[in-house]
């Protein structure tokens, strides 16, 4: 198994771990968003979606554990990369200018990542590890977003998530080696569109629940 440690432990291997887990999160986000959209069909639709999910029982636990594992890998690898990359340039430039390669997304990956981590903990405390006896998930969500502070935090978080994903998604394709002159421009467009969908899809929900519904 030494070979596996060597391969995954190399600089490219670490990137691969980031890419695969990142792509995992992207598909999770897509699924999560699809589920959340049931809110627009009203509270019953949303509650029954939640109930349906819970009825999956062990499958959902497995999925959760899987996500947790992905998160651990993503966080640990990301932190290692951040630390190693910081050390790779002991003396900094006194003047730094981009030639146009970097984007806001790529520039801020570690920071947006760190923020998202805190946000996810916050999010799980609010909606996941909450006592749901005698109430429905719709009520929990609805009452949370009556608080303007929550709305602001969620909208900001979604913007940050979109920034993170705007680099992460195409970058994951590059990392797994899928950069082709014919397809890369398309993949980049998809990354940006996907980020936009995240901002709008997730970001509009709190506003909708808090003020419109």
């Amino acid at each position: 198994m030494n070979w596996l440690v060597n391969t995954l432990g190399s600089s490219i291997g670490k990137k691969l771990l980031m890419a695969i887990t990142g792509l995992g999160f992207c598909s999770f986000l897509a699924g999560h968003l699809a589920g959340n959209l049931t809110i627009y069909w009203g509270k019953d639709a949303f509650n029954s979606y939640a109930a349906h999910l819970h009825s999956l029982g062990p499958i959902i636990t497995m999925a959760e554990l899987g996500l947790l594992f992905f998160a651990l890998v993503h966080i640990l690898t990301g932190t290692t990369l951040f630390y190693q990359n910081f050390k790779a340039r002991p003396v900094r430039y006194s003047m730094n200018k981009s030639a146009g390669g970097r984007t806001i997304g790529s520039r801020t990956m570690p920071y947006t990542g760190f923020f998202l981590l805190i946000f996810i903990v916050f999010h799980l405390i609010n909606f996941h590890f909450i006592d749901k006896t005698g109430t429905t998930i719709y009520q929990i969500v609805h009452s949370a977003f009556e608080n303007i502070g929550y709305v602001v935090i969620y909208v900001i978080a979604m913007i940050i998530a979109a920034i993170h994903v705007s680099h992460g998604l195409w970058s994951a394709f590059q990392t797994i080696g899928a950069n082709h002159v014919k397809y890369m421009p398309f993949i980049k467009v998809v990354s940006y569109v996907f980020s936009l969908i995240i901002v709008i899809g997730f970001g509009f929900l709190p506003v909708y629940l808090g003020y419109i519904a």
Binding site: I12, Q84, N85, A88, A99, G101, R102, S106, S171
Partner: peptide, 13 residues
């Protein structure tokens, strides 16, 4: 050396 994170500054410079 550091690790590549697809910043693409290399290609630009």
């Amino acid at each position: 050396f550091g690790n590549c994170t697809n910043e693409t500054e290399c290609e630009a410079e």
